[in-house]
Design a protein around this nucleic acid. Structure first.
Lengths: 199, 199, 199, 199
DNA sequence: GATGAATGAGACTTCATTCAT
DNA sequence: CATGAATGAAGTCTCATTCAT
């Protein structure tokens, strides 16, 4: 019984968070108001504060959930059985499709906010550290397996890869009409040349 | 006489803009208030509105000037006499130093804002288009000169390069303690392998 | 339950509107400030905007209610069973008393505002059209009944009558010390001669 | 020399006043701003305060000049050589044309403002008193000459006539599409019957 | 759990007016 | 005479948050 209540609570909380994320994506963290979120989530302001103690708390929750999502994708990517470079390419495909579906979303806002809000900054940095660990390990394994160049610095390569995800978001803002297929091919070229064992 | 007035006006306007940029970098476009900007610029709110018709106008002015600055750096880079890859590397050095001096600045906020505000979006896209043109031309020349791989798609390579600038900004937020020297070396490796003529 | 809420809401709204009308009568639509209205209505500015979306909305609401009140009086007047001229005279008495009780009120402000604000203009014109219809019908009936001159143009006579209401308002401003009894007598003379069947 | 200066000064002052009147007609006394008036008069705010000590001073000056204009028309009307009733009718024609040319103008604003601002109120009341004197004398003369009914109260008849001018302004706001010719005929009827010697 | 009334500080902006040149 | 820089209070309205029901 207690559990059922808690589950319902969590579900509602997630719904609110999803509504908030839509608002934040539309207007930014400071541009979106509690009132708008309430309307989007079909909830009263008084009630919303039963689920979140403050707007800041919603922002950090969204930062966390957004980053968890990316982290999950990266994790999945690092567990793929294909060779490293091909996995990278397919991840780029996924990224491209996700962009098309979800619009720019909230990642750029998280990055901007993380640069000034230590709370959000901490969350982002923890998630980033985790992702880098995953990727660096993945690269090291691939180096041992001979898939990618053993001379590369795995830590730094991982950092580059992660920042390329961010850059992908920025790219759709800079060039909304970019031919993503052509771009994907060139990006693939870069990554293949970068990672491949040199001879 | 007219000129002296106009010059003073422009100078004051630039001072206010600089103050506003500091505030925006600290708090974000929507987090920073006119009152804070006024205090930073040592000006009264009434007077500020003699120079800018609205806060939005200040934001777009800052977006423009910030992008002009980056564009100027790219232009300088494309005019360098050294070979393409070396120029790229030195540009990365500059970027790293600029980051260290100026903090994260306002670029991430521009990117986030451009995704929702069509005005800012237009400014960003125009500037991006200009930069891509510069870079693509630069790459084409370098391809003719034999410095870089003639099989590369210059348009897309230029887009990737611009992405790397954004990626650099994101990186400093994700990994504030990153060893930039090690990172620079790996980035240099990636670019050399990407651009070099294949054999 | 729903009804009780809505009723309380409407009641509070009406209270605020009454307070606003007092302020507007004292200072004019643009001279009265939201802060003054809030003080008069004993309400916080934030809360006031739960009841009215803007100051403009309050102005139009007051224009409507003020005109509805006058319209109701005219309606009552046109339904009176006495002969037309006597009804007119008694209406003038009422008007005179209402002036004395309520001060100049807000009608002159509505007229002035209606000349520039299309929203208020529309409200005034709709109400005026309605009143003219009532009066013209009343006059036509009285013409058929032989009470007033059948040669008169009922539409235009109605317009004149409405003008006389406005004229009354203006008069109290121009001549605050006017002997209203003497004035009433002369006005009565004018109306009797105007409306009476000629022989 | 002194005189020439003073004349220029007065002329400029009148120009500014005319510009202010246009602004006030468009936006109302409190809705129009000094900045707008400055733009309309092509003058700087600093300079405007060489001609008028405050906005209030401009309002009273406009009230005065506007009323002087009406007063002059009334004076001219009372000096006409035709019989009283015909003079009244022609005045109504003039009024109608003036309305059409100048729009609603500023009279309704003066009336509304006079109801609360004692300064404007005083000006209006003085002017009204003067006009009433003119008209009452005119009526008395006409009564002696047998043109109009000697039983009428000249003071009150004058008051009625003056308030009909105000009502005319209001009428164009209430009924912008009113057939003025038909209205004029009915008004003429009313005045003729009112003023004519009864038998 | 759920509502929406209520707050008051603070948001952006405009105001009438003064001052230095 | 003339400008426009400069002020700071006050304008309307929105905000995140709390409270009574």
């Amino acid at each position: 019984m207690r559990t059922i209540h808690a589950a319902k609570h969590d579900e509602r909380r997630a719904q609110i968070l999803a509504a908030a994320e839509r608002c934040f994506a539309r207007r930014g963290f400071h541009g979106a108001s509690i009132a708008q979120i309430c309307k989007e989530a079909k909830i009263s302001p008084g009630h919303l504060y039963h689920y979140f103690g403050s707007k800041e708390e919603m922002i950090t929750a969204i930062a966390e959930s957004g980053l968890v999502y990316t982290q999950a994708r990266v994790k999945q990517f690092t567990e793929s059985k294909t060779d490293a470079v091909s996995a990278t390419v397919s991840e780029l495909e996924n990224l491209r499709d996700a962009q098309r579906r979800a619009g720019p979303g909230v990642l750029l806002d998280i990055l901007a906010e993380a640069a000034r809000d230590p709370q959000v900054g901490g969350i982002l940095q923890d998630a980033s550290k985790g992702m880098r660990l995953l990727l660096a390990t993945f690269f090291e394994e691939a180096q041992k397996g001979g898939d990618i160049d053993p001379d590369l610095d795995p830590q730094m390569s991982a950092a580059i890869f992660i920042s390329l995800i961010d850059a992908g978001k920025a790219l759709t803002v800079r060039y909304p009409d970019l031919d993503m297929d052509r771009f994907g091919k060139t990006m693939e070229t870069m990554l293949r040349r970068f990672l491949s064992r040199q001879n």
